[in-house]
Design a binder for these strands. Structure first.
Lengths: 249, 249
DNA sequence: ACGAAAACAATTGCCAGACAATTAAATGCC
DNA sequence: GGCATTTAATTGTCTGGCAATTGTTTTCGT
């Protein structure tokens, strides 16, 4: 294999990996109880502190949960979509903020992914999905909305589009891509005119989905992508400036 | 907010969250050094063990790395695509294995996502990308390949398709979806005939990409999806049987 | 003066042992 | 039988210590 792991890494990391492998391989099923910390310490021939550090690593990955008291302990956790989604979002966000991603690259990925679920959304979106879309559109139309709130509603709108495809795996994968864009989108200042344009496009998109017209929805999404790209054009220069400032310090 | 966090959760979890918030917010930049464990212990008014547990949590999320020795310590880690990808894959795999996902749902998501990057792949794939595709196809054509190895090569092929779109964010998001399917695909037994069919479709797909014919590639992918679905049909019954057995025990 | 070797200092890695807090089960009392 | 109390198991936290690692500094021999 690629990594030996036998002597260089932490004991706690090795123990955590050993347990997480067992979970991944299915040797430990959801809600199975792990041995107590004392037993694990004996089993791996390490101190209890080291075992605890390993368990904290697993807890940080939502692989286990712990309960106190007699008959408590560490239990294999059934990973929920929501947990996975949350972790995916933080990781995607980090990836985008720490790797000086170009706005156009991020934009391209995000719209490509959203486009992937448009046919399904058009085929399956129900009345509640449409209501959710319209609700966000109505919110975006309020003129007293802050830029940040407008942006949040934009994200909520697109998440609703994704969710209306009614495929939890798609929702999980795409929410990362959509929400991670928010910090970047937040840097944009939205004029009244650009807001009106976006609201109009959102309305068109909702209409197309209601008509179950996937082709039209696709075309509208393309327009939205072009427009977003245009709005974000200033960001590249802005980022370059920040980078220049930082390297000067 | 939804979670108070003030009194119910672990101290180490609260400390970890406090630090990770600082990283997410940009207060701590890549390669910044955190205070030493002793200093953090004093700062948060807890023992060193508790701080260490918090740091292990962060390390498990690839948010920090630690170095020993004088002038060592914990440093904010620049999250690489590879780290993120690895974590995304384990999480997606876990999500699929622990939540008794229906094969058709997973399949739909996976192909929808791959379809999302086909236009980009067709427009951008270069000679190395094509060579990579052909190499995997050649491997899949060897009759002495085990089912598992065939499946692994299939995953490698589709990852190559995704990578040829030349958008790192897309690659990151999609590798999770593609690779997480592997355990499910591994349950399929591939006959010589089905392998030949898949190899033929892969060849067609590579050809279409070489011709930069996105529409043809899309059509081929649809065929491949239908065929995969057909191959996996037995899995639903098989899974139901497993579930029945487990509930009986 | 210069280079190598040794000592130093700061830091993480690991351990042993203790006590507090929590919680389910067992026990005892009525 | 039902309720209060005790008990046992387990995690959460703290204290204190020693080993290993590693960059810096000092010392020493030439």
């Amino acid at each position: 294999m690629k990594s030996d792991m036998t002597k260089k890494t932490d004991l706690s990391a090795r123990i955590a990996k050993s347990i997480s492998d067992a979970i991944l391989a299915g040797d430990l099923l959801a809600d199975d109880r792990l041995p107590s910390e004392a037993e694990l310490a004996e089993e791996f021939a390490v101190s209890r502190s080291t075992v605890r550090e390993a368990l904290k690593r697993l807890a940080a990955q939502s692989l286990i949960r712990t309960e106190r008291g007699a008959f408590g302990g560490a239990f294999v956790r059934q990973l929920s979509y929501d947990d996975a989604r949350r972790q995916n979002i933080t990781m995607s966000t980090l990836l985008l903020t720490m790797n000086e991603i170009r706005f156009d690259v991020a934009c391209e990925a995000r719209f490509a992914l959203e486009r992937a679920c448009l046919p399904l959304s058009a085929a399956r979106c129900g009345p509640e999905d449409l209501a959710r879309l319209r609700r966000e559109i109505a919110r975006q139309d309020r003129p007293d909305l802050s830029d940040e709130a407008f942006c949040a509603s934009d994200v909520a709108f697109h998440r609703a589009v994704v969710d209306s495809a009614d495929n939890p795996i798609l929702s999980y994968q795409l929410s990362g891509a959509v929400e991670a864009m928010q910090p970047l989108m937040n840097m944009i200042t939205y004029t009244a005119r650009s807001r009106a344009r976006i609201v109009a496009l959102h309305t068109d998109l909702a209409d197309a989905l209601e008509r179950r017209d996937a082709a039209a929805a696709d075309a509208i999404l393309t327009t939205l992508q072009t427009y977003t790209l245009q709005l974000g054009e200033g960001l590249l220069a802005h980022r370059a400036q920040i980078r220049a400032e930082r390297s000067a310090s």
